[in-house]
Structure formats: structure tokens, C-alpha cells
Nucleic acid binder design. Structure first.
Lengths: 267, 267
DNA sequence: GCTGTGCTTCCGCTCAGTGGAAGCGACGGC
DNA sequence: GCCGTCGCTTCCACTGAGCGGAAGCACAGC
């Protein structure tokens, strides 16, 4: 690269992306020096590139000088076409309307759960899931569902790793977890009891599309109300089926008449 | 710059940002050639940079070869700290729960309305507003509110431009619009009747923070149900006040004890 | 006043980036 | 079946934009 003893083969674009990629759920606010450290770039390089990103509002800066992802990024992100979220939202609302609890939908991304959307109200217990956030699979309701219906090789690969243990109730013992997953497949839904957060329990149902697992819908309630969980299964299953149906309807035109694909995402 | 007859003073970063900035609500899906045209960059340059963006999942590509904003951008955008959205959501839910209609919150950005969040269900009429989307101020409920409480110079500057006219009912005549705004100030809320979309009418209320206008909460219903609009004003005003209160509570620690600022956005 | 932390500015070296051009494959009109 | 068009991909020689080490600055804590 131009200049001194720079690392070879690193493009400007990759540096820029590394900088914005330095921000994640665990590090949403960073100083210049932290960005430099996390990206392995020289401070002066980061300084220049960050200034340009800030100019463009891709990054913002707060009073204490730390940088954070800017509103323009949020706006841009909203353009990412996600038919699943679009289609699921009304169904999450439906479940929320009947329960007043946290309802969310997630997909598997790698070996993690990626939350695609979330609906919550004033009464709901605060929970860790966040739209755009990621959590491990085994301690979450949606995660168990997403894991249970993966092929055997995937499941055993997942179980063979050392599993995080966010609470004492988290099931990390492979044998027990495997039995748990068998039960999920048999019953068609999953539940958790304080396995991710003390004080919360959850239920989740799979969204199948033509026999393939697409996503999972989940609900999280205070563990004082475990008793009510069974009552919430049916609404979840209904929503899951509704989402699958609407999703197929929304996506079908795209794959069947390729030329029309633009129309859908374009509105 | 390096190479041939390139335009001077344009940095790589600015090119990259120009490329992602080429995507907007009106152009969410673009071909390589379109991106090149919209950014004024050489096709080969766009090709190279876009490939890098695609590698990083900042852009995605669909079957027909068009590019679109990628999921990674969406994830990243979700990190943009927005206390307003965070705080408003439960209140929007509250209004939605009581009405089943489209409820949204917007801020002014330049001379446009920027929708920050939106809640809708299965029954609600489809509307044009979209989280992250922008609309002109004068034909929308939230826009009228946001305009009405701006200083006089801003309002007259806005009125002196030629105003879009999405429907025959849109009020574009400056005198009439000014009277409309006076009424909004007097009543403390705004209404519209098919001014943005035929078949829809709306109401909106201002969110004041320490005497400064922060945002507007709005509701949109089918114009067959105009009669019900008055009934919706009170819930809107309540939500607006609730949002203001919660927002102050959420933001106050940040400005008062600077050192703690990180904590809030960091969760 | 000294030390540490984090940001900003400066500058000379050099290779990463540039864009024109040519090649390629698919489609459609005649 | 041929040719024009459209959109994407690959190639390459030139060069100034970008790089990062280093020095300077501002502020806070001891």
C-alpha cells in the first residue's frame, strides 16, 4: 500500500468496513483508540477514515467523544429487504395483543440465534433479546427450536462445543440437551425455564416453509408466570403457521416470475 | 488519484459511501450499471468496490443480479442508539392495542418527516410510512405537527417552496396551509384527510421536551372511519406525554453525569 | 509538575486504486 | 442465424491518494 510499513493486501474498503465492523452489540460505543485496537489499524488511519464516516453520518459522536453507529446507518439498514420481518410483524402483534408479553422472531445465523424482530409493551418484563441481536442457541426458546430441526450432523457439532452457561439453569450437558431437542421435535415447540436469564421463562414454535425450517417465534414471560406458558403455545403455533403462509405468498411471485422481483422489495 | 483521468479530491472512502448511498427508498435495488450512473464512478471501480461490499455482506444480490442493502447493514443499523425509538415503542403499542390501527412516530429531518418507528397489525390499512422512510411535511399528520411548532422563519421558508401534491386533497396553497398550522398550534394536534393517500386519514400529536418539539406521534386510519378520528386524539396525546416523560428520564442521566453516558446506549 | 490517555496534525514514501478498453454471455429483434 | 444491445467481468499501466510513524496538544489524575 501507499506509504510506510503498511500491512499488505488490505484494501481501503476493507479498512473502512473493519472500522464500522468494530461496532457490535457488546461494543456499541468506542473511542478512536479502541477502534484502532480492534481493527489493528494505525491510529492516524483510523482518525482520517472515521472523520470521513462521521462527515457522512455513518458514525456519530457523543459528548464524551466516543463514536457510535450513526442514524444514517440505521436508515440504510431499514432498506435491507427482509420479507420475513415484514410478514411476521402483524402476527407478532397478534400474539402480543392476546398476551401483553414480549414476542419475537429469530432465524439461525451460523451457530447463533439472530433476532429479526421483537414486539413488546409497557408491562412486559425487560429481556435480553434485541432486534438485530444475537444469542447462543441452547439457552433460548427460539434457539432450541432452530437447533432441534437442524440435521443431525449440525446438532452434534453444536453439542460437541463447550456451551456458554448464562445461568445455573442453563442446560449444557450434551445428553440432556439432546433429549430436550428430541422432545421439542416430538411436541412441535420448545420451552425454557430461567436458562438464559434468571426470572424469565419462554416458549417458542417453529416456522416451517415447505418442510424447511425458516425461523422460530418465541414469547418470554416472567418466571412467576410459568403456569401460563402452556396457554401461550397455541397462539404461538397459530402465528408460526400464519407467518409461513404469508411468507410463501409474499415470496412466491419473486421466485416464480423473476422479472417481477424488484416490485416486492421496492415498495 | 492513482491511475488514469480520475476526478480529483475524491477519496476511496467517499466512493464507497457514495455507492451505499446510491440506495434509497426510491432505489432499493440497483444493477451495477445503475450504481455507476448514480455515483458517477467508472463501472470497473464500482465493480471492484461493490464486490468488496458484497463479500462483507454490506450488500446482497438477488437472483436477477440486482444489488440491495445487505442484512449486515441492517444489523449494524440496529446498533445506532436511538433512545426515542426505544422509549416510544411501548407507547405506540399502547395506542395500537386500544385501536388496532397504524401508529407511528416521526421526527423532522431537514424539510422532511423521518419515520422513526411504526406499529401495525393485521387489520390495519396499508400505508406509505415506513420506519426509516421519509415523506414531505405538509401532507402528513406528523408533518403538520412538526411544521406547526417550528419557528416562523422555518415555516415561511417551507411554504415558499413549491409543494408536492400526492393527492387532489393535498393542501399546497400557502395561505390555507398557514391557517391549518395555526389551528394545529391552537388545538394541540393535527389531522389530515386523504392528503397523502386517497382512502386514508390521520391524526398526530406533538411530543414536547422542555418546551422544545422533539417528535410527533401519529395514527392513520381508513377514510371510511373519519368519524372515529376524534376518539383517537386523547390516546395520542397521552402517548405523546408519556413518551416525553420517559424520554427525559432515559436521557437525563446521560447529560447530567457525562461519564455514565456509555451505560445507556450500551445495553 | 509530571505522567498517562486520547486525539489531532504533519509529511515523505510508495503501491493500491483507478478507469479506459476489451472480452464475454445472454437476450431480443429482424 | 446474425447483429446490436445491455450488463457484467477482466486486464493493465500510470500515479497521486493513502499510509503510518512521529511529534504536538489538551486534559485529568496523582
Amino acid at each position: 500500500m501507499p506509504g510506510g510499513a503498511r500491512e499488505k493486501g488490505r484494501t481501503v474498503a476493507s479498512r473502512l468496513l473493519a472500522i464500522i465492523g468494530a461496532f457490535d452489540a457488546a461494543h456499541p460505543r468506542l473511542t478512536l483508540t479502541e477502534i484502532a485496537a480492534r481493527t489493528g489499524l494505525a491510529l492516524s488511519t483510523v482518525h482520517r477514515l472515521v472523520a470521513e464516516l462521521e462527515d457522512w453520518r455513518a458514525l456519530g459522536r457523543d459528548e464524551d467523544g466516543r463514536y457510535h453507529v450513526g442514524r444514517r446507518m440505521w436508515e440504510l439498514g431499514q432498506l435491507a429487504p427482509d420479507p420475513l420481518q415484514e410478514v411476521a410483524r402483524p402476527w407478532l402483534q397478534e400474539v402480543f395483543a392476546g398476551t401483553g408479553e414480549n414476542v419475537h422472531i429469530a432465524v439461525r445465523d451460523g451457530a447463533e440465534v439472530l433476532y429479526v424482530d421483537k414486539v413488546y409493551g409497557r408491562q412486559a418484563v425487560p429481556i435480553v433479546s434485541r432486534a438485530g441481536g444475537r444469542l447462543p442457541m441452547h439457552p433460548t426458546g427460539v434457539g432450541k427450536v432452530l437447533l432441534a430441526f437442524e440435521p443431525a450432523w449440525f446438532v452434534s457439532a453444536y453439542l460437541s462445543r463447550s456451551l456458554e452457561r448464562p445461568t445455573p439453569h442453563t442446560i449444557t450437558e450434551p445428553g440432556r440437551l439432546a433429549r430436550e431437542l428430541t422432545q421439542v421435535r416430538a411436541r412441535g415447540y420448545a420451552t425454557t425455564h430461567e436458562e438464559m436469564t434468571l426470572g424469565s421463562c419462554s416458549a417458542a414454535a417453529p416456522v416451517f416453509l415447505d418442510g424447511r425450517l425458516l425461523a422460530a417465534v418465541g414469547i418470554v414471560v416472567s418466571s412467576r408466570r410459568v403456569r401460563e406458558l402452556p396457554r401461550l403455545i397455541d397462539p404461538l403455533l397459530t402465528a408460526a403457521q400464519g407467518i409461513a403462509r404469508d411468507y410463501r405468498a409474499a415470496v412466491a411471485p419473486r421466485t416464480e416470475y423473476g422479472a417481477d422481483a424488484g416490485r416486492l422489495a421496492g415498495r
